[in-house]
Nucleic acid binder design. Sequence first.
DNA 1: CACCAGGCCCTAT
DNA 2: ATAGGGCATGGT
Length: 191
Amino acid sequence: LWPQWCAKKKERSLREIIAIGAILAQRTSWHNADLAMRNLKKAGLLSMKKLASLENYNELMELIKPAGFCQTKPRRLFTLSSFIINEYSGVDGLMEEKLAVLRKKLLGLYGIGPETADTILLYALDKPSFIIDTYTKRLVERERLSDIFEYDYLKQFFETSLPKDSTIFQNFHALIIIEQKGRKRSLMEIA
DNA sequence: CACCAGGCCCTAT
DNA sequence: ATAGGGCATGGT
């Protein structure tokens, strides 16, 4: 999903990068989030420990500018990284936490809503928490899978319709996106 | 130049 | 509870 950043093996640094990307990608294109991540990497700040140790997160404003919302995303990154470092001393500690407990804690953090929380849980931590994003909602609408579009309802719908397996959740969600990108491209070609 | 891109917080009903 | 406005930038 983050082709440039995702390697085969899931190592600690990759899990951190995915979590950082989840925030940077909020309401922005992947391209712009990628530009911001490259800036962070160049500055040597693409890690939870580095981000959490910033004395002033406004230093990030210039680096994050391509991803937009540079007044809020630096604070969101700092909030998340501080939480992970201070409460769990890193992503390894996060992995040990129970899904439901961790999801509730993530939702309590500034700048982390249901979609970002589930993105971190599913893609960064390999925990079976299905993501409801705009792609998923478009699929539900187009295929008329439900009349209700409330987040928790759709989340339950997918989670009870699929085997509760993080790899299956990851691949199914990725396919929803791939399918729509392919559709868009083919429509362009037809036009 | 107008519109879009994997949300979330805050405020007012 | 829930709806609506605001936030910022790079592509097309």
